[in-house]
Simulated assay, not measured.
Amino acid sequence: MTRMTRLRPLRKLLLSALLLVLLSALVAGCGQGETDVGETASGSDGAGSAPLTRTVGAEEADLPDSISTGEIPQPPLQNRPVVIRSSGGEVRVRAEIADDDPERTRGLMAREELGENEGMLFVFDSERSLNFIMENTLLPLSIAYIDSRGSIVDIRRMQPLSEDTYPSAEPAMYALEVNQGFFSERGVEVGDEVDLPSTVVEG
């Protein structure tokens, strides 16, 4: 056997090893830059694009399952001024109007903030005993129950995510929710009169 014949198997072995090294390097290079599942990722349309963030689950946010981000849509509602005539003077609230079943059911669920002089006015078709709950509601709120004549018949403080119910002491046709403590800080009491938006009163 000649020397050249003995070297051929060695060349084949070295060539195979070299190809294996090159193939391994190529596979490793293709894996770089991938985003792990669950992480935030940059947009694909170039520099300056907004990050694509994942939805925060209820378990991760320490909230009930039904309130995980994105599950309770908040379409814009009409805003109207509500004026309360208290012993300390006029108290004005910029109120969102919830006047149908889906809007009343959703209420202020999932909201993380409410402006200082903002609230939500719930409008019902007739005067009745009203009863509110705080399911999926993150904000501490105060509620004023208002009868068909515009008089406040009850004021209650409601705790976030509470399973308690908050019934009206007297029949009411409207309910005004604001940040907790809003009424007491401004001297608003049971018996005070409320000027409701004309669009609400006239139906």
Rank of each mutant, 00 (worst) to 15 (best):
A58E: 13
T2Y: 02
A28D: 11
D100L: 08
M134W: 07
R3P: 07
E112W: 01
V27K: 02
I143L: 13
G150A: 04
Q74I: 13
G89A: 02
L130F: 12
P76S: 14
L161M: 15
L26P: 02
L26D: 11
P81T: 02
G48D: 10
G43F: 07
M109R: 13
S142M: 04
T35Y: 14
F182P: 00
E59N: 04
L19H: 08
G119W: 02
S162V: 06
F122C: 00
D65Q: 12
L18W: 08
A144M: 11
E71H: 10
G38P: 05
P171T: 05
E112S: 08
E185R: 15
V56C: 05
E193V: 06
E135K: 13
V194L: 10
E112D: 11
T165H: 02
V27I: 14
R156P: 00
P51G: 00
E96M: 09
E189H: 02
G31I: 01
T165F: 10
S44Y: 06
S184H: 09
F122T: 06
L7V: 15
R94T: 14
R3T: 15
L108G: 07
G150N: 01
D100R: 15
S162I: 04
F182M: 08
I155N: 00
V178W: 07
S66D: 12
I146C: 10
L141Q: 03
T199L: 05
L63S: 01
L10S: 01
G203S: 10
P81M: 04
A25E: 15
L130I: 15
G46D: 05
N179G: 07
M4F: 07
S151P: 00
V190K: 09
G88Q: 14
R94L: 12
Q159L: 15
L63N: 00
G191M: 01
G150Q: 01
L121C: 09
P64E: 06
R85W: 08
V188R: 00
S44W: 09
Q180V: 05
I67R: 06
Y166G: 04
G187M: 06
M158L: 14
F132P: 00
P9N: 06
S44V: 09
R186D: 09
A41T: 14
L10R: 12
M120V: 06
E170I: 07
G203D: 04
P81G: 01
